[in-house]
Nucleic acid binder design. Structure first.
Lengths: 212, 212
DNA sequence: TTTTACAATTGGTCAGACCACGTAATTCTC
DNA sequence: GAGAATTACGTGGTCTGACCAATTGTAAAA
């Protein structure tokens, strides 16, 4: 895969060395990597090449650098890969419809996923959301959804949802205010697996509130 | 979103400037970006900072640099990002699961979306897929899916699906071969809106073939 | 006109300098 | 001796300048 004839760029070789190092030493999230200067010496390459490798991995979300402290391995699940891709994928003024539509797909997937939780877990989740609502932390329907999907267990999907949410919010009007009755409505729907209401909650949540 | 107090690292600001430049000038795949030295001057930053930004975007697969020629925008679909992430993530089981799961959500959404097409459109679509199969262009189930989702009308979702597909492909075994019977099975299911089969096609397509 | 040689441009890499930030060791103060 | 202030060191952040290597464009030579 990696061409050996037309020799690799130095910064890429550093990336590979780092990978080997990480595997060999069983490094995991939070662990510290050698300093730029040390790596530079150990690998006999310029510090700038090491930095290029580090910057690339940083933009990928694989490492984190803290000024004055060092460079650390990051929890890969936090990768902001999504933001990055979003920045470039959505560049061409993509149809807002596509964004909104895909957002709903993820919502449906997340809701379905949560349906597999047991009753006590669901109860606990909704209770904490109600508390958040009463404390004024959750004020819009999308805040509500965010809390739900964050707990759905698929972090990647949640990240993507957040990006789509941001994009959607920019183009459309302000997010609708949250009625506490809606929380209970959704809770009931989840506990009884009422797919009709769940679907409506994803596609047109405001109608659920007006119906009240 | 982007912190303005603790000022951004220079290389990140370059990334943002590039993004703006790409949007403003409507640059697309294959177009050339300014040289490192020119950017360095124009943005009043060191060339090394420009290089850090370029290297990062290169590792992401968003640009391509050719020695002696310059730096060019790349079709994002060519990203070797998957290899990169896989290289660092593969030991993490959860990430894989998230990818596969979200891939299925998009598939379900795309299929549902296509259900709204009229019969003649669906017929035309499947006919062209059959032709592609007979010409040896579509050989795996995922090729089949790709053809479907590409036509689903939501380009954003299709792009994301491609990313997830690549990611999934490198972690799991080879994609299953496509049986032409499966095409007809799915076609029939679409025309009759048989959600059970459609769901199975998204989640466990091979079982549909074994059943034949 | 075609070919060849050379100059200019561009990326690739390195070395060194200096600043800013954190931390740990040290010194000072009480 | 304990705590607070200071200092020294290590680290990332950034810039500059230098040189090499690949490519392209141009001008001279055939």
């Amino acid at each position: 895969m990696t061409k050996s004839t037309a020799q690799l760029k130095v910064y890429l070789s550093v990336v590979h060395k780092l990978k080997e190092m990480i595997q060999r030493d069983r490094l995991s999230a939070g662990d510290r990597l050698p300093s730029e200067r040390e790596l530079s010496e150990r690998l006999s390459v310029g510090r700038s090449s090491v930095r290029e490798a580090f910057r690339a991995l940083e933009l990928l979300g694989l490492i984190e650098t803290r000024h004055g402290e060092g460079t650390f391995l990051r929890d890969f699940r936090d990768h902001h890969l999504v933001e990055l891709l979003g920045m470039f994928i959505l560049q061409n003024g993509q149809a807002e419809k596509d964004v909104l539509e895909m957002k709903i797909w993820i919502e449906m997937g997340s809701m379905n996923r949560m349906l597999q939780n047991d009753v006590s877990t669901l109860n606990w989740l909704f209770d904490s959301i109600v508390t958040g609502y009463q404390n004024g932390e959750i004020t819009t329907i999308n805040h509500f959804k965010s809390s739900l999907f964050e707990s759905s267990g698929n972090r990647l999907a949640y990240k993507v949802w957040l990006v789509l949410y941001d994009f959607d919010r920019m183009s459309s009007k302000e997010s609708a205010a949250l009625d506490i009755e809606l929380i209970y409505t959704v809770k009931k729907a989840m506990l009884s697996k009422d797919m009709t209401i769940i679907r409506t909650f994803c596609t047109e949540p405001v109608t659920l509130q007006q119906a009240k």
